[in-house]
Design a protein around this nucleic acid. Structure first.
Lengths: 363, 363
DNA sequence: ATAAATTTGTGCGTATGTATC
DNA sequence: GGATACATACGCACAAATTTA
């Protein structure tokens, strides 16, 4: 070492850094005293202080007067908590999302976390932007609603980067089949089953359905729909099922002739199950326009128990979305992942059928 | 200075920092040499080096061997853009807030910014928590809806810290009288005026009102209410005015007898102006329970044009809140402040009266 | 172009003060 | 109180980079 060209204090720095890196000293262990180092290297105490001083600035050591010099806790540096949680939903203002976000915030803000908000408009491109944005912000965790959850997701690479960085993710509403992760969602199969069973038990034999084709929830609700039919040995008429995708959604709500064509096919139906309340409410009007009165001529069930369900003239029977409760559950789950209490949480919440005017037959 | 208890090197540090802060030296200007400082303070060069060494670590100075000591260019450090914008509202899920947040996000996400979300529940304590949280996150800007805007705000100290750090703030809906800042809000005086004028022109002479007492909007809407009365030489009967504060809000919506007592006072009234749609909708039911039919016996006007206004059986005449538009305006204003295009933006947006069933007399 | 002067960088020795055990 | 360890401070010497005469 004496032949080294580097300044002595640099050599001492390297020695101490190596000593710590090799694990010979752990965080908060006491280092040799300044005197001891001076003797060992046959240098002045001043030079030792110079070396230690720089290591303190670089975060390797800390000193306490009268006690000694100690190894700093580097974990605190690298794993520094940002107290930021990313929350990405498909939409922001419509419907159930404000409630979900409120539920999430309720739990997180109590623990001192702040929400970083993003939304994808159910588009992969926007999802990618959101994810990349959040990746730069040193999140402690992420709660995200998948975009078009049944399609293969082109942003899995970014999800992997979150995983590699040890940032826990909780999916809500659905998950991607090609990415194993925690999720909190309502049990949509059970929901579809409960809605259908309710109609069947009210005596309906021919039941139509409108389902979304490009997210997990749509498929699951249909699956429950099928399950209930099987249980009661009823057949499903394919003509009575209307599938739509995210892009078709506007047409479904706005294009009257499109909907009327579908209604014309439903001559023998006395029940209709709609993917969500928004569509159900829309169908109430569309059916009335054809002289079909709800619930007299046709019973209608929606999903989500949104505000819409309770505000029209005909209150809507609906499978209640847990909304705030789901938000709270997702948030508490994420906190458990962050704190290391649990490794992976996959939870399905039981839906609740709320019966109102649109399926009451007693008038 | 020699009588000072602080170590000499600390005193030298303070001297140099002040010298720079006062603008006597600009970035890359040469500082006194170590010898010169030692002579000036009658201390050893070693002590001067200690002071300078720490200032180098703190980012104030840099040294070049053989040349001298120079003032560092701090701008690169402090003005680093985080691309984070704080958004704090009173409430999250109810009513108009999802739309406002959506409008804000629409503009900001386009520019690559991400929203940090918080809400205050209209409580000072929660507002303080939110603000402190965000202060730690190196925001580029803040959009905030004041909490109980007419009361003296105990968190002004934190707002000042934002100002000192050069983080621009845009208030929405209201502002604090003791803190000068940019704001974007609807013109509530004009809104109150328009609502009242509408009723007066429909022939109503005795008009009741329900107003919120602890936010700027409530006072402003009442002010417009007064202004319209003056213009038409009508007197206001104090018995017909019901004031409520944030704490009373639940009672106003849930305590039937409380509302009924107020309604009993309104024998001669044929018009009612409500602080917002939520209250207006509630009053529709309360009036009906007393056999007073809207609009036949009493015309009702709300504020905000929320979803509630359009969904009941009796569609509500209401002064439209710009919602998304206000969000977008607040966001673009904040961007202008961040980019330095403008210094201060104080904008009032014109409200729009939307006439519906609750004030139509033609049936 | 070179030498001298200036300025920072490294290093040693010493002394005294202050906190901890 | 005494021993130990860090904190502040002075003075000196020489090396290396830069500027200036």
């Amino acid at each position: 070492m004496s032949l080294n060209n580097e300044p002595k204090y640099i050599q001492v720095k390297e020695f101490i850094k190596n000593y710590i890196s090799e694990g010979q000293l752990n965080p908060d262990d006491k280092l040799f005293s300044e005197h001891e180092l001076a003797n060992r290297f046959q240098i002045s105490r001043h030079t030792v202080r110079k070396a230690i001083g720089e290591l303190i600035n670089e975060g390797w050591l800390y000193q306490v007067q009268g006690k000694g010099t100690f190894v700093a806790n580097t974990e605190g540096e690298t794993k520094k908590k940002s107290k930021l949680i990313g929350v990405i939903t498909t939409y922001l203002k419509d419907y159930i999302f404000p409630d979900i976000i409120y539920g999430i915030d309720e739990i997180l803000s109590k623990e001192g976390y702040t929400i970083l908000l993003g939304h994808t408009n159910n588009e992969f491109e926007k999802e990618r932007n959101c994810l990349l944005n959040m990746l730069n912000n040193n999140l402690d965790g992420l709660i995200i609603e998948p975009t078009k959850s049944v399609l293969p997701n082109p942003n899995i690479d970014i999800y992997e980067r979150f995983k590699n960085r040890g940032i826990p993710i909780v999916f809500i509403h659905a998950y991607y089949n090609n990415f194993k992760a925690s999720y909190v969602m309502e049990d949509d199969i059970l929901g579809g089953y409960m809605a259908t069973k309710h109609l069947i038990e009210q005596g309906h034999q021919q039941i139509a359905g409108i389902f979304k084709s490009d997210d997990m929830q749509g498929l699951a609700r249909f699956q429950g729909f099928v399950q209930a039919h099987r249980e009661y040995n009823l057949t499903i008429n394919e003509k009575y099922i209307l599938w739509f995708s995210s892009q078709d959604f506007d047409r479904l709500l706005l294009d009257d002739t499109y909907i009327q064509r579908f209604i014309h096919k439903l001559k023998n139906c006395t029940g209709l199950i709609c993917y969500n309340d928004q569509i159900a409410i829309n169908m109430l009007d569309a059916l009335r326009a054809q002289g079909i009165y709800v619930p007299r001529d046709c019973a209608v069930v929606g999903f989500d128990n949104s505000e819409l369900a309770q505000q029209g003239e005909i209150k809507l029977t609906t499978v209640a979305h847990p909304k705030e409760k789901l938000g709270r559950k997702a948030a508490t789950s994420l906190l458990e992942l962050i704190n290391g209490t649990k490794e992976c949480i996959q939870e399905k919440m039981d839906p609740e059928l709320i019966m109102r005017d649109s399926t009451q037959n007693d008038n």
